[in-house]
Each structure stands twice: as C-alpha cells, then as structure tokens.
C-alpha cells in the first residue's frame, strides 16, 4: 500500500514538475528575446515606478527560465517550486490590479502585446492552479526521478 502511495506521489511530482517547467520556460522565452517589449508590458500595468520597470523586465524572465530548467532536471526542486509560487502570487496580484483598474491590455504572460492573451479573470484561475502545483511541490519530498533524490542517495552511500 505504502509503495503504491509513493508511486502515486512520484507520478504527481513528475507531472507537476514538468507542467510548471514547460510553462515557465515557455513564458520566459519571448521576454528574454525582447526585453524592451516586456518592459513596455510591465510599464503598462502601471504598478511599478518607472525606476523599477526595467529591472523587473530583465530579472523576471531569467528567474522564470532558471527555475523552469531546475524543475526539469529536478535540482533544488523545492526551492524552485517555492519561487514559482512567489512569481504566481506576483502575477495574480498584477492581473487583479489591472482588472480592478479597468486596464484593457494584453497580459504579456507568454508573448508580445500583439499576440498576447486578453486580460480576463480566467488568467487568475490559471495562475491559482499553477500556484497550487508549486505549493504541492514545495511541501512534498522531491520525486525519485529528480537529481535531488539521486544526490541524496549518493550522499547516503558515500
């Protein structure tokens, strides 16, 4: 029974890890390639002061891609999952503020403003779902296909 539960947990861990990894790597790609465009998206939300817009536009996409790649290989899995939670809280807050202020803009989540998604409350539901996956990975022990577990086994045998 216990082995079966462990197997289910591992299966969930792998799926959650890969979903988050793909979403975050995919989301970062356009932003890294087009920092000015993403800066414009950040500025459009009218939340951050101008002095912080570019820093946010530069660092956030790299944090997304680093976290996504770490989740794929399963290194620092819990810390990476914790960071996805933090980023999702940030996204949810920004979208909620934009919706509350009647800002009719593209979310800038995955693509340029021309090809971006329309800002709707559905984006908040999606990010809550991603937050839940990240939260689960943060509190769970990393699955056995992660580098974390491999390194743990090695340390035990050493």
């Amino acid at each position: 029974m216990s082995a079966r539960i462990d197997l289910l947990k591992d299966g969930f861990g792998v799926v959650a890890r890969l979903i988050l990894a793909v979403v975050f790597v995919w989301a970062s790609w356009h932003k890294i390639l087009n920092p000015y465009d993403f800066g414009l998206q950040v500025a459009t939300y009218q939340i951050l002061p101008l002095e912080l817009v570019n820093l946010q536009a530069l660092i956030l996409p790299w944090a997304e891609i680093v976290v996504g790649l770490l989740l794929i290989v399963g290194l620092y899995t819990r810390a990476s999952a914790l960071l996805t939670c933090g980023m999702n809280v940030m996204f949810i807050t920004a979208i909620a503020i934009a919706l509350a202020n009647d800002l009719h803009l593209q979310c800038g989540c995955f693509a340029s403003s021309e090809a971006g998604e329309e800002m709707t409350v559905d984006l908040i539901y999606r990010d809550i779902g991603l937050f839940a996956l990240g939260a689960a990975l943060t509190v769970m022990r990393p699955d056995r296909l992660t580098l974390d577990r491999l390194l743990e086994r090695r340390r035990k045998h050493a």
Partner: peptide, 23 residues
C-alpha cells in the same frame, strides 16, 4: 540577467530614462 543585458547589443538601461509609451 544583468550580465546578459550588459553584453547584448539590444540591451536596455537598468533604469528607464524615458517613460514607456504605454497604452
């Protein structure tokens, strides 16, 4: 992020010097 931005030709300033032309 900052290292890559420093070396890429289309890097942006760390602090925006002019406001973005937002919607």
């Amino acid at each position: 992020a900052l290292g890559t931005n420093a070396v890429r030709p289309d890097g942006i300033p760390l602090v925006a010097d002019i406001p973005y032309d937002i919607f």
